[in-house]
Amino acid sequence: MNGAALVTGAGRGLGAAIARTLAARGWPVAVNDLPGRADDVVADIVAAGGKATVAPGDVTDEAEVTRLVTAVTERLGPVGCLVANATGPQPVVGFEDLTWHTHLGQLEFFVKSPTLLAQAVVPGMKALGGGRIINIGSDMPERALPGWSAYSAAKAAQLALTRVWARELGASGITVNVVAPGWIPVERHADVTQEDAPST
C-alpha cells in the first residue's frame, strides 16, 4: 500500500501538525483547507524536504470533494491515507436554544463530510490494495458537558459510522479508525479563557 495522504482542515492547528508529521514519515501530503489557509503548511513541509501540495476545497460539498480528490490523485497519486479533521464553528448552545439547524451544522462536518470523503477515496484505496481512513473524534460524548449536545451527538454518530465502515471495508484492506483526543488549545481557541475552556 502506497499513495498519498489527504488531511482535511490542515491549514492550522491539529490538522497542520498531522500533515507535517505524515510528511516527515515519507507520505506525499495533500493539505486541505479553505483557499489561502494551507500555503504556509505546504511551504514548511517542502522546506523540510517533504512533498506536499495545497488542496483547497469545501469538504461538506459533494462536487467540491469529487474535484478535490481527483486533483490530489492527479498530483500525488491515489489517496492511501485519509485524515478527516476538518471542522466548522462549535457554538455552545443550551437545550432551550437548540434547533435542528444547530444539529445540522455539526452533522455537516462529522457525518456528511467523512462520508463524502470516504466514498471518494475508497476506490483508489482498493486499487492500491488497502488504505487508512482516520476520523478525528472527541471525548465530548462521554463528558456530556452542558451546551454541547449538538456537537456531542454528531461526534457520537461519527464514531458509530466509523465502527460500521471498519467492518465493511476491512476485507478490502482498508482500516477505519477514530482518534479521539481531549481538548487541544490551538489557534481557533486564542480567545478562550481558562474559565471558558471545556472541562469536566
Rank of each mutant, 00 (worst) to 15 (best):
A118S: 15
P141M: 10
K112M: 09
E168S: 11
V41W: 03
V42Q: 00
N177K: 10
D44T: 11
S138E: 03
T193S: 15
V54S: 11
G13I: 05
D40F: 06
S138I: 05
A86I: 10
E142S: 13
T53S: 14
V122G: 05
V31N: 01
H189I: 00
A55K: 02
A156R: 10
G15H: 05
T175N: 14
T53L: 11
P114C: 08
A24H: 10
A144E: 13
A4P: 06
A154Y: 06
A156F: 11
A17P: 02
H103S: 03
A5M: 03
A5D: 05
V42H: 01
W183S: 10
V192L: 11
G88S: 09
G137V: 05
R132G: 04
A55Y: 00
R20L: 12
L82W: 04
A23Q: 01
R188Q: 14
R67Q: 11
G3D: 01
A19V: 06
G15Y: 03
E96C: 04
P91Q: 10
A150W: 10
R25G: 14
L161A: 06
A153C: 09
Q106R: 07
Q90N: 14
M140H: 07
E142M: 13
D39L: 03
F109A: 13
V69R: 05
R167P: 00
